[in-house]
């Protein structure tokens, strides 16, 4: 592409890339500008690194195709999944959805560079990105997300004494993850490094982390909650759920903690996403949750020969913590 340099994003690009993102996001999406703290958290401090390409034109960053990598356990081995989170082209450099333009050029360079690592890329693109991504960049829909939601009584519910509020995660959480992972085909490795980065150190965002421990201090289950605007309304959101199926008591009290927190926050609805293949999808329904259609479609592109999107659809455990939706 004449006049454009397409290359991997470097540290020096962070400020101009953020400026480009902010100009597009605040103008056309109406979201608030991202601070340098938020940008650094996403692209500098992630323990799994970053995967990002930019297009430069006359010294300015005019396009970005960026993903947040996560260490992932898949079918018995460790790999990298990467959530495509920021993809944009400044309006004056766009070429429409039917022609291959700069968006496709940067996206293809991105996939050529990082696809060879056996990465699975995923995300919840908006409609326009879906159209261009399916046509030119190999996006495949994985599923239309269903939201599990329950209305709760507004009277105060007691917070269960068996549930501990966790300030940070320690190494014991990895043991819990390994127990849970036995029923997953693939999942982000929810170790202390990841969970602390994702739910403790994220700037300007408050997550509540709940845990249940056994008498030795080991974790039997973890639930992470956030009250925020979700699907257009302020709601109590289940951001992550990590409980082995055999820990039924832990699951019950964690749900009680979520309901109590929801009521305390004055929220009428607690909601979350659970992969439909999982037994938890039924479990939440038997406790009063109902399933609802959403406009979110998770899509992916897998560079793993044995684990394509079809394979992942049946086995990949992901939560809203794997998204940037909550």
């Amino acid at each position: 592409m004449n006049g454009y340099t397409i290359r991997e994003m470097e540290e020096r690009d962070h400020t101009p890339a953020r400026a480009a993102w902010n100009s597009v996001a605040t103008r056309s999406l109406g979201v608030h500008a991202r601070t340098s703290d938020e940008w650094d958290w996403c692209y500098r401090d992630n323990p799994a690194g970053r995967r990002a390409f930019v297009a430069e034109h006359d010294g300015d960053v005019v396009a970005l195709y960026a993903a947040v990598p996560v260490k992932t356990w898949i079918d018995g081995e460790t790999a990298v999944f990467a959530r495509i989170v920021d993809s944009l082209v400044l309006p004056e450099h766009r070429s429409g959805l039917k022609r291959k333009g700069l968006f496709v050029g940067v996206g293809r360079a991105f996939f050529e560079r990082f696809g060879s690592e056996g990465t699975v890329f995923f995300g919840w693109p908006e409609d326009a990105q879906w159209r261009i991504g399916e046509r030119f960049l190999g996006y495949t829909p994985l599923r239309h997300e269903l939201l599990l939601a329950t209305e709760i009584a507004m009277e105060a519910q007691a917070f269960p004494s068996a549930v501990e509020r966790l300030e940070r995660f320690d190494d014991s959480v990895h043991e819990l993850f390994e127990r849970c992972a036995r029923s997953y085909g693939a999942a982000t490795v929810r170790d202390a490094a990841y969970l602390n980065w994702r739910t403790v150190e994220r700037p300007s965002t408050v997550y509540r982390r709940f845990g249940v421990r056994d008498e030795r201090g080991g974790l039997l289950g973890v639930a992470i909650q956030r009250t925020c605007v979700f699907m257009g309304e302020e709601r109590s959101v289940l951001v992550d759920w990590m409980v082995p199926h055999e820990e039924e008591v832990a699951a019950e009290v964690l749900l009680e903690a979520l309901l109590a927190t929801t009521a305390q926050d004055g929220m009428a609805l607690l909601c979350g996403i659970v992969p439909t293949w999982s037994a938890w999808f039924e479990w939440f329904q038997t406790r009063g949750f109902t399933a609802h259609a959403t406009d979110f479609v998770i899509g992916g592109r897998s560079f793993r020969p044995r684990q394509g999107v079809e394979w992942l659809r049946e086995r990949w455990w992901y939560q809203l913590s794997d998204s940037d939706l909550a």
């Binding site: 239309h144 269903l146 999808f281 038997t286 399933a291 609802h292």
Partner: peptide, 19 residues
Amino acid sequence: GAFAREWNEFQARGFKVAR
């Protein structure tokens, strides 16, 4: 289908959603 009106109506009648 999940966008059909009956999706929610049948849950209100006690049906559970299963894949």
